[in-house]
Each structure stands twice: as structure tokens, then as C-alpha cells.
Amino acid sequence: MSILAEPVWPVVLLAAVQCVDAAMCWRPIGAVQRCLDDVHAPPLVRRLLTPIKLAAAGGLLFGLVVPYLGVLTCAGLVAYFGIAVTMHIRARDLGRNFRNALGLGVASGLVSICYL
């Protein structure tokens, strides 16, 4: 029996995506800024994006050793991306950013299987 989730690579990949996304939100690059503007994200939400994404990356990686933490982190990511999808729908922004949020939400749900 392995201590680590199996397979490990989807977890590490999703954690890396969250780290890159956090970096892009810290000082929003043009595409991120436009996306946040398009969905009318309030200032508080914008300030919280980087810490939330870094916490998610940490939770995914610590979840490799403590599986229930990984499952909870994936559930949190599914909820986070569910909110993002809802914001895109409300703003009638159904392009690439909507598809990215939807895809990452589905990926987060699928990654939770690695911890089970």
C-alpha cells in the first residue's frame, strides 16, 4: 500500500497550474485583467485570488500524504470553479475563459479520484 495518491502526476500538474495561475493573478497580466473585468469581479475577490490559488496548490500537494486533505482541496476547487463558471454565465462571457473555468472544474473533480 502506497502512502502517496496514485497516480501522482495529475495532482502535481493541477498544483502547478494553480501556482502559475496564482502568479498571473498576483499582478494580473492583460488576459487575466480582462477576464476579471468581463465578469465584474469585485476588488476583494481580485485580492484573494492569489492566496486562494496558492492554498489550493499546497492542499493538493499535502494531500499526497494526507489524502482527505487532497479530497477536500479538490472539492474546494470544484466549488471555486463552479462560482467562476456562474460568474461567466451571468456576465454572458461564454468564450475561452468560460471554457477554461469549466475545464479546470472538471479536472479538479477528476483529480480527486487519485486520492481515493
Rank of each mutant, 00 (worst) to 15 (best):
P43R: 07
W9F: 15
G70V: 09
L72I: 06
A101S: 14
Q33F: 07
G76S: 04
A15C: 08
L94Q: 04
T50A: 12
D21F: 14
G59L: 03
S108A: 15
V17T: 11
V71E: 02
D37E: 13
A16D: 13
F62Q: 09
V17K: 05
L110D: 09
R46E: 12
K53Q: 06
H88M: 04
F98Q: 02
L48K: 01
V65E: 13
A41F: 01
H40A: 14
M1R: 09
G76M: 04
I29H: 12
S108V: 05
I89K: 11
Q18A: 15
L104I: 02
A79S: 07
W9H: 12
M24I: 06
G30P: 05
V11W: 07
L110T: 08
V85L: 03
V111A: 10
M87F: 03
A55T: 14
A79I: 10
T86L: 13
L94W: 13
A23E: 15
L64V: 06
G30N: 09
V20M: 09
A75F: 11
R46S: 03
G59R: 03
A107F: 14
L49Y: 09
G70Q: 10
W26M: 09
T50W: 01
P28D: 05
A57L: 03
L36C: 01
P7L: 08
I29M: 12
A79R: 04
L13E: 05
A79D: 01
L61Y: 10
G63M: 08
F81S: 00
G63C: 07
Y115D: 06
P10M: 12
L72V: 08
C74S: 07
C35S: 15
A101D: 11
H40I: 01
L36G: 01
S108K: 03
I29G: 08
V12F: 00
R92Q: 13
F81W: 12
R34P: 00
L60V: 12
I89R: 14
Y80A: 01
L110F: 12
G58F: 11
A101T: 05
A101I: 03
V39I: 15
D37I: 04
S112L: 11
A56F: 07
A107L: 15
A56Q: 03
A79T: 08
P51Q: 10
Q33A: 15
L13P: 00
T86I: 07
A75V: 15
A107V: 11
V12C: 02
A56D: 00
S112M: 14
D93S: 14
L94N: 06
V8L: 11
S108P: 02
R27G: 03
D21G: 13
R47F: 06
D38C: 05
D21T: 15
T73I: 07
V65H: 14
A84D: 08
V17I: 15
L60D: 05
R47S: 04
R27A: 11
D38E: 13
S108Q: 05
I83K: 02
C114L: 02
C114Q: 09
L49S: 11
A16I: 13
P7E: 09
A23M: 13
A84Q: 06
V106M: 02
L102R: 05
A15G: 09
C74F: 00
A16E: 13
L14W: 08
C19N: 06
F98G: 00
L77M: 13
V17D: 02
Y80N: 00
S2P: 15
L116T: 11
L49M: 15
C19V: 15
D93N: 14
L61M: 12
